[in-house]
């Protein structure tokens, strides 16, 4: 059985050697087609990384009640210290805030009109999980109920917006990948169909002298799968080349923002699914093509 598989594979490789140009063309077509969604994925992945690394992390502003006691403020402080999901926090006392307000040129007039300090003690908190809106919401809800807390405000609008955009981007990639995958099925299927037509005589003879459908199908399935594997690798190389090509420009731009951000390809996440997915598409296309062809060469 293994010998049969080796034989089929050897046949396919021999055929590829005889017509290297045709093989290369198929692999390139598949590679280019797959490179498009793969590049979008890389772009999105880098955007996500960039967004995660920027200073505009979401903050929770915790305002104490006006009548909160020193003990309650201290309690909140210890709670914040002990929490694992809080990255950093800063205490702004009502006196400091009042001084800041008076010092602020635009707010000084307003402050002057007030008889006493209207500001509460406050904490400015940076949660650890920047990019998980649900966790941020939960944290804010919980803090809201701490004793002595008047209100906890989450400035999460932009996080939600970003997530909305990224989710949209992901959906777009999925859609493009699905459409192009469908196109690849047709392209690969057609190429296999041509090969079958070229070997019509061999298939017919093989049937007459006792070949099973499985035997006849096998080399074509290998051909389709190899197209897929080759195409997946080609796509990966194209993405790597494109990233390298873009990185010069990215470096120039990010230098202006005093950042050393560079595009990176998430190879570990991407390589295997890309190649395996592509191989699977090739196999599937070949399966369809051979199935149709065999039904056409029916004898008996």
């Amino acid at each position: 059985m293994i010998a049969q598989h080796k034989l089929a594979l050897a046949q396919v490789l021999a055929r590829a050697r005889r017509a290297p140009l045709a093989w290369l063309m198929m692999v390139t077509v598949i590679g280019v087609t797959l490179a498009l969604p793969a590049m979008l994925y890389v772009a999105l992945d880098n955007m996500q990384r960039l967004a995660g690394g920027l200073a505009t992390t979401p903050q929770i502003s915790l305002f104490m009640a006006m009548d909160a006691s020193r003990e309650q403020v201290a309690d909140v402080e210890t709670q914040l210290k002990n929490r694992a999901d809080v990255a950093t926090w800063r205490f702004v006392s009502r006196d400091d805030a009042w001084k800041n307000m008076q010092a602020d040129a635009e707010l000084a007039d307003v402050a002057a009109g007030l008889k006493k300090n209207p500001l509460p003690d406050a904490f400015v908190i940076e949660p650890k999980e920047h990019d998980n809106p649900a966790a941020l919401d939960a944290l804010q809800q919980e803090m809201q109920h701490w004793s002595g807390v008047e209100s906890a405000q989450l400035d999460a609008v932009w996080v939600k917006r970003l997530h909305g955009l990224l989710a949209l981007g992901n959906k777009l990639i999925a859609l493009i990948a699905a459409l192009l995958g469908f196109a690849l099925l047709i392209i690969t299927g057609n190429s296999i169909r041509l090969q079958i037509a070229n070997q019509h005589e061999e298939i017919q003879l093989s049937r007459l002298i006792g070949a099973t459908d499985r035997f006849i199908r096998r080399p074509f399935l290998y051909a389709g799968t190899l197209y897929g594997v080759g195409g997946g690798i080609a796509a990966l190389l194209i993405v790597l080349a494109a990233t390298w090509f873009f990185n010069d420009s990215v470096a120039e731009i990010t230098a202006l923002y005093a950042s050393d951000f560079r595009l990176t390809v998430p190879l570990a996440d991407m390589a295997l699914p890309l190649i395996v997915g592509s191989a699977l598409l090739g196999w599937l296309a070949a399966r369809f093509a051979v199935g149709r062809a065999l039904a056409g060469i029916e004898n008996y």
Binding site: A3, Q4, K6, L7, L205, S206, I209, A211
Partner: peptide
């Protein structure tokens, strides 16, 4: 029904391959 795209050896080997005899 000879296959003209391969040599004599491969023509004769086809039934063996179908029967699972190789090498």
């Amino acid at each position: 029904k000879l296959l003209f795209d391969r040599n004599l050896f491969d023509n004769v080997a086809l039934p063996l391959h179908i029967n699972g005899i190789v090498g």
